[in-house]
Design a protein around this nucleic acid. Structure first.
Length: 891
DNA sequence: GCGGACTGCTTACCT
DNA sequence: ACAGGTAAGCAGTCCGCG
């Protein structure tokens, strides 16, 4: 007899009568995915073979993912129809096969028995490609095979038989190859009609389209490109119903997370929560729940007790087989991995498990939903480009707690006890809370995260699974490869670019770096009132665009281009052909700067409109900011050091020329870094002339970025404090703001900042200085009296590698980490170690008491932190100390 | 045997 | 697995010194 989801949902119905216990219950009028899954399963067989089925309907769906079906040896697409809330799978029917290209002629190839008699070999096809590096066409042969492993990935693959020097495009994953050849754009709509896949163009704003096309009407190549990009930028993001999951596992150890590889301990709770506010928490009944209190959950969130763990897991799996988009926080390496391994232990056959695990890089795993798509938010938020450019570094650590606190302004309620000892009522709440926060991270700011993911998928032509798990270099590679294929350009091998273009020719300032970077102007230490900051809008992408920088255009093969030199380098740039990277980055730059960025701030537009412009603008920013970096990254497949150093050389040229011009105009430059200049009380006229000059002579756009009431420049570069005319304080580089500074000192520093924020005129400084000195003395006294808690004194430093691999030196946080290991704690790379300085070396906070503290070390820390600001204000630290000493002397 | 000058390592920041 | 430049603190080494 089969158990039916509906019947057990109904068995918990009475609890629904209870009033909502919490005000943050996110019940909306949106149709619940979870309810649909549960109700829909009524007439469906529970067995997983229910999926996949061929869609007969012509309903359009969002292309979420492109996969490879190993059994059928075909590309498989996952389309999501948001209104039916179902995934439709589609298998390729176009006879597309894996292939690679070679410069051997067909005749030569027939001599190569290893190739033509390879068991995966299918056929040869002659083709012509354009070679950007040589600026000419070339005849090539496409060697077609039955499966991807026949091309590459085995020792006897065709790629190896041809030899690396005679094969091209042989290490592109088949799913990517398929995506490019079919010109698929994940994130856009497709329909299956008569068994065939066709794109479905959605309506988008014709006004936006016209404006964007007008931007490039003078440039035919850019005009062609923008036409192709319009649907990517303008198609509104689909609303994607989704489900969040979190699990809790029993463990006999309070301070050790159960190992998902062995999955030794029972899964005691699983929370599922959808975007419409419906939730279900499955709990295992344990001994401690004898006199069970009923868990208090918000309206729409149900709770079901299970007597058997296996039943619990099977129930969750029933839901997961029908889940189109699953969201977890660290599901790849914990929740889903644990569930799979635990399920095997419980005797659930592999075919009934809706999750497929794949080993990733290092000891990492990737968890795919066999039928839907799984987003692991931990991995997405860990992406440095997302952290820095999309979220402007608002979160600096990667726990669910830190990220929710930073982005939602909401954290978890603290755990009253260790998981295994929690009564069901508390456990259920805790588990649900994590699922709820995970869901909320995809919902805030008008579903910003989902919008970003969809936009990034479209731009990079990658499916949701890979997009959310790979770094920006991978996205850019994918974008550029796609452009090569669309234009019939052969994708060069990395070694070909390096052999033709050579290495970097400039010397970096920092030992171990490859080439010279940006200019940082020596700051004029002191307080300066009425400072205007000007900066170049997207300097490096602008340079790539304006100066035609691309791997094929730098040091091109035409002798007549050699006069078009790059200052301070021996390089020259092509004058005959527009570079591909230059074209693409240029268009993306213009689209962002001229269209999406201004509209994202346009108060005459509705909030919904603005938020969409803002999503696009942020996605474009991510690509732009990394576009120069990848060119200079040795592991990037289109790496080109001469191109990268040409970009920085032209950047230095732009800023130094602008400084010269500013001085000629009679303006004083107080400071500058890479693409910005701090000007002392510039006149409107001076600014206008400077901006005109940059535009005219340097071909880069200079803008007024900020107006400070005053700036306190320390004598150190990359260290300053500025108060804008609107009273907002910018703090850059100062120790007080660093995340490894003890909390007490961060707080003290913020008090100082508050004093400085209120300064409006030079005369206000007299009183401010006095207040700051008093503040500093106050904290020194509190230190002496040991009035801070150990947590407030903790220095929190990241372990960037595993504790054993520090062999050259043993930094303090590593010493503390080793003490933790000694005490049986599990410590690994990426962890943040909290330690205090004691009179006897360092100690982890967990092991230290306030009496151990080395007060003088902390006083030094206070001194250096305050000094960074005080020296800008012209105050000697001795004054501070001196007065304190007099105080104690007389007092 | 010890302190100062120095270099190198590590982390966190800026653009 | 985007780049280079800067600051800070500490670890480790070398040198000089009746």
């Amino acid at each position: 007899m089969r158990e039916d989801l509906t019947s057990w949902m109904q068995s918990t119905k009475p609890e629904k009568a209870k009033p909502a216990s919490r005000e943050d219950a996110t019940t909306t009028s949106r149709r619940s995915l979870l309810q649909t899954i549960i109700n829909g399963s009524e007439n469906e067989p529970i067995r997983p073979e229910w999926y996949p089925r061929t869609p007969r309907s012509a309903l359009p769906g969002v292309l979420l993912d492109v996969e490879y079906d190993g059994e059928k040896a075909l590309a498989k697409l996952k389309l999501y129809n948001p209104s039916t809330m179902k995934i439709h799978e589609w298998l390729d029917n176009t006879e597309h096969h894996p292939y690679c290209l070679t410069d051997y002629s067909p005749r030569e190839l027939y001599e190569l028995k290893d190739v033509v008699e390879h068991k995966g070999f299918l056929k040869l096809e002659e083709t012509t490609k354009f070679i950007l590096l040589h600026d000419k066409e070339q005849q090539l042969v496409s060697v077609v095979a039955s499966d991807p492993l026949a091309i590459g990935g085995r020792r006897d693959s065709i790629r190896e038989k041809l030899g690396r020097k005679h094969s091209w495009e042989a290490d592109i994953r088949y799913t990517k190859c398929y995506t490019m050849d079919r010109a698929l754009t994940p994130g856009l709509y497709y329909r299956v009609q008569n068994g065939n896949l066709t794109p479905v163009l959605q309506k988008y704003s014709s006004k936006d389209a016209a404006k964007l096309q007008a931007l490039f009407k003078a440039d035919s190549e850019a005009s062609t490109l923008i036409k192709e990009y319009l649907p990517l930028f303008l198609t509104p993001a689909a609303y994607l119903p989704r489900l969040a999951l979190d699990i809790e596992v029993e463990s006999p150890f309070a301070d050790r997370i159960p190992d998902p590889a062995t999955a030794e301990y029972p899964v005691i709770a699983v929370a599922l929560h959808d975007d419409a506010g419906a939730g279900l928490v499955c709990v295992l009944r344990r001994e401690i729940d004898e006199k069970a209190e009923t868990p208090q959950l918000p309206k729409g969130v149900e709770c079901k007790f299970f007597e058997e763990e296996k039943q619990l897991v099977e129930t969750v799996f029933k839901v997961l087989w029908r889940t189109p988009i699953l969201v977890t926080f660290n599901g790849d390496n914990f929740d889903l991995r644990y569930l799979v391994n635990r399920a095997k232990k419980l005797g659930i056959p592999s075919d009934n498990i809706p999750i497929r695990l794949r080993p990733g890089i290092g000891s990492n795993f990737e968890a795919r939903l066999k039928h839907g798509v799984h987003i692991d938010l931990y991995r997405f938020f860990n992406n440095r480009s997302i952290q820095i450019y999309a979220f402007r570094n608002r979160y600096r650590e990667f726990r669910l707690e830190d990220i929710s606190q930073a982005l939602l302004g909401e954290g978890k309620r603290p755990l009253p006890d260790f998981i295994s000892r929690l009564p069901a009522a508390v456990l259920v709440d805790y588990c649900w809370q994590d699922a709820n926060l995970t869901m909320k991270l995809t919902q805030f700011d008008n579903n910003l995260v989902v919008g970003l993911i969809l936009l990034l998928m479209r731009l990079s032509h990658q499916g949701m699974h890979d997009l959310t798990r790979t770094a920006v270099s991978n996205w850019i590679r994918s974008l550029l490869y796609y452009a090569h294929r669309q234009n019939n350009y052969l994708i060069p091998r990395k070694e070909e670019i390096e052999a033709m273009k050579g290495e970097a020719k400039t010397a970096a300032v920092i030992k171990g770096r490859k080439y010279l970077g940006a200019v940082v102007v020596e700051p004029q230490a002191g307080v300066h009132f009425d400072v205007t900051v000007v900066d170049f809008a997207s300097l490096y992408p602008s340079i790539m665009k304006a100066y035609n920088i691309s791997y094929e255009t730098v040091r091109c093969s035409h002798p007549e281009c050699k006069d078009n030199t790059v200052p301070e380098t021996p390089h020259w740039i092509c004058t005959k052909r527009k570079g591909l990277t230059s074209l693409i980055i240029g268009v993306i730059r213009d689209v962002r700067v001229e269209h999406f960025k201004p509209r994202s701030k346009d108060k005459t537009l509705s909030e919904t409109q603005r938020s969409w412009y803002s999503v696009v603008e942020q996605a474009l920013k991510v690509f732009l900011n990394a576009s120069y970096g990848v060119v200079g990254a040795a592991h990037f497949p289109l790496y080109c050091a001469p191109a990268a150093e040409s970009i920085t050389a032209l950047g230095r040229y732009a800023i130094t020329q602008t400084i010269k011009q500013a001085e000629q105009l009679g303006a004083t430059v107080l400071y500058g870094d890479t693409d910005s200049l701090f000007l002392a009380k510039p006149t409107k006229e001076q600014l206008r002339k400077l901006i005109d000059y940059s535009e005219r002579e340097l071909r880069v756009e200079l803008d007024v970025e900020k107006e400070y009431r005053y700036v306190a420049l320390s004598s150190r570069k990359k260290n300053y404090l500025g108060v804008t005319k609107s009273g907002y304080v910018d703090i850059k580089g100062l120790t007080g703001k660093k995340r490894n500074t003890p909390l007490f000192l961060q707080k003290a520093f913020m008090q100082m900042v508050e004093i400085l924020r209120q300064v409006r005129s030079p005369s206000d400084f007299v009183a401010a200085k006095e207040r700051i000195l008093r503040l500093a003395r106050e904290h020194l006294t509190k230190l002496e009296r040991r009035e801070y808690s150990i947590e407030d004194l903790a220095i929190r430093m990241q372990l960037t590698k595993s504790p054993e691999s520090y062999v050259k030196t043993t930094p303090q946080h590593v010493k503390a980490a080793r003490q933790l290991i000694e005490a049986g704690r599990d410590v690994s790379a990426g962890d943040i170690i909290a330690f205090v300085k004691t009179t006897d070396g360092v100690k982890p906070v967990e092991q230290a008491s306030i009496q151990d503290i080395d007060v003088s070390k902390y006083k030094d820390l206070v001194q250096s932190t305050f000094e960074q600001v005080l020296d800008a204000l012209g105050i000697e630290w001795i004054e501070t100390i001196g007065i304190r000493r007099l105080d104690t002397f007389f007092g």
